[in-house]
Design a protein around this nucleic acid. Structure first.
Lengths: 292, 292
DNA sequence: AGCCAGGCTTCGGATATTACGAAGGCTGCA
DNA sequence: TGCAGCCTTCGTAATATCCGAAGCCTGGCT
């Protein structure tokens, strides 16, 4: 039995109007078309749905049963349309945001909390990437928004200053390096390091600079989360490179500035150049750039 | 935004299959058609519903929302089809049964109770008509089943004996006519009568015979229901013509047989000659003829 | 390095569905 | 008897839908 949404709508309107003429009119159909559709429905069902009277039509019991279903289906369709409309208007949606470790662990959580609370129907997916990977992903369109440090390649991207960020070396309180200022990273390569687990952006980043300095880092441990790293260091084991913001939460640790230029970085919110953002991404970008 | 049930089904199948190719296959569509449909849906909605990957497609958040609605709508459609099927198969339905007053007030209620209990999905509509009107309505198809007395015109009808029925004159206990046997109706036209209200078949029937006897009945009151009539007569006011079965329930009343042939009648279940009954009507007819 | 395999899109033509206006039949009413 | 309201049927035109073939792209296999 083939049924059409137009059939259902027509049947509903006809039943409400009490005549095929009236229903066809409301449905914006010619009388002939309406009549043919209704006849088709009855043929398909193999039973009468409308009782043809002299002064219009009234639904048969089967027709009344059909009406119930038709109403719920059409209501469901309305809800569907409404929801799609919300998506299209950006009231509902989903944004993928890529950021380096410093931003994604220290800065963004608070900002996102505010955003999510203010936009209950928007979902955000935050992923941790090195700045170059962020820039590349946004440039080729696999993410709409990114937070990248300025050492990345910004060609093809539009950038807006986001935050300053600084990497520091944290050491246990009594450590020989503690108290030094503007320490060149090369001078601490002999230390035992604690790193982040997995493919964490910060871990890859530090590793890269160690390699560039010509010497592999001695990694005593790799753990989940910047706080995990700091906890270990605060126990007196090893040193680590972490965002200054993270170190600030651990007063028991000594934080030593790094002299290298890559440790001082400006974070930028990047989008693909020339691309118009989807409404949800637009809102998130606005929020990230304006909220304090 | 125009949407099609085929669209919804296709989208569902595509999402389940994980690829347009697979979904088109399950939907019985050519790949090209499926692709065009999906594209059309996205154009209409103004947003992406499927994320095209290298190895198939996955729904976007909007697509997932659509899936939810699609599933419920299609489920609703299935229920609808099922219900229509029940109607078509006669598992659900509606029968209009016409009967004269005696049958509809005294005999049918009990029988229908049993039928309705045994067939919870069948509805019965019982209407009160004079026997000639019953016969005519059934003959011309405006009702499928009827119960008519044998003085009606049975041409074009198929009839099956149903019950014997007799009309009696009920009087208050001490009434002069009480105790008479085989009283000609013509001899009691001078009495004061109590009748049924409205266009009740029995009322019209008795009225007709009085007219044929050349004298209008003196109607003291017309009330609802045979029991109402009997109650009044039992108070000592007037007399009435009622089915013998009704009179039997009032031992306080005297019931006098009428000598006229029209007072003795055989009730028949009638259907239109040559017409095949709808399944619900068939069941009701069977029940009426076999139940005791 | 080159070559299938799997997946999606586009293209052009055949086919079916759908819509429409006009004409016709029926009934009730003035 | 004529008119008005309502439904159906008919023939035609527009529209939507479908399909197979060809093309593009990516990833894996040889």
């Amino acid at each position: 039995m083939h049924l059409d949404l137009t059939d259902l709508r027509l049947f509903l309107l006809v039943a409400e109007a009490g005549s095929i003429t009236g229903g066809a009119d409301r449905a914006g159909l010619a009388l002939a078309s309406a009549s043919a559709r209704l006849r088709g429905m009855e043929d398909q069902a193999g039973l009468a749905l409308l009782e043809r009277g002299r002064r219009g039509v009234t639904p048969t019991p089967a027709g009344r049963a059909l009406l119930v279903h038709a109403r719920t289906m059409l209501a469901q369709l309305d809800r569907l349309r409404g929801e799609m409309g919300e998506f299209a208007a950006g009231l509902r949606g989903h944004v993928r945001l890529l950021a380096n470790t410093a931003a994604s662990t220290e800065i963004l959580p608070d900002l996102l909390a505010g955003f999510l609370a203010a936009n209950p129907s928007l979902d955000v997916e935050l992923q941790d990437r090195t700045s170059p990977a962020v820039a590349q992903a946004v440039a080729e369109g696999s993410a709409e928004l990114g937070i990248a440090a300025d050492h990345a390649d910004f060609s093809g991207l539009e950038r807006h200053f986001f935050r300053d960020d600084r990497l520091v070396l944290v050491t246990p309180p009594g450590h020989p390096l503690a108290g030094r200022g503007a320490l060149p990273f090369a001078e601490c390569l002999a230390e035992e390091f604690i790193g982040l687990a997995g493919d964490t952006a910060l871990h890859l980043h530090v590793l890269g600079h160690a390699q560039r300095a010509g010497r592999p880092l001695r990694m005593r441990a790799r753990v989940e989360g910047v706080d995990g790293v700091c906890r270990i260091v605060s126990q007196g084991v090893g040193v680590a490179v972490v965002p200054e913001r993270s170190a600030a939460r651990w007063p028991a640790l000594a934080a030593v500035r790094l002299a290298d230029p890559w440790a001082e970085r400006r974070l930028h919110l990047v989008t693909r150049a020339g691309a118009t953002l989807t409404p949800p991404a637009r809102r998130l970008a606005d929020h990230l750039l304006t909220a304090r």
